[in-house]
Amino acid sequence: MRPVIPYVTAALLFGLGGYGVLRRRNAVLVLMAVELMLNAVNLILVTADTTAKAVLPHGGQVFALFVIVLAAAEIGVGLAIVLQLYRMRASVTVDEIPLAERPADEPVPVAAGPIAATGAGPIAVGPDGPHVPGDGPEGQR
């Protein structure tokens, strides 16, 4: 077995994943490119497990399993964020997300509640109810 073949494959996968993360505008496609990069890392780990002699056998494969579990957790939280973004803005385009300070007249989204409400007091909590389409029961508010 020539270890250079899977190593070069992993390097090219990582490069393609990085290209996808920087190139794509749709957040779901960005997550797919992140999956490509994680797979490249897994391939490196498994190949290193077969080529390098370690004190503990199969350490690389155990870490590949760990990285797979981490990727599952990442995709769960990431998709929750993407769906919440779509619910707030009806778009998942990553370069339209305002990263600067929010203007005063713009409604405060509900998803920012735990941070914004405790930080800014009752001003941030007040008008956010009607701005979420398909929101749950409002009576408890």
Binding site: G15, Y19, L22, R23, N26
Partner: peptide, 21 residues
């Protein structure tokens, strides 16, 4: 409208991939 104009992306992705390879 899926892509943004991507010379920096191609540069960084290609650089990382080919450099590591």
């Amino acid at each position: 409208d899926l892509d943004r104009p991507g010379w920096p992306a191609a540069l960084i992705g290609g650089g990382a991939g080919l450099g590591l390879a």
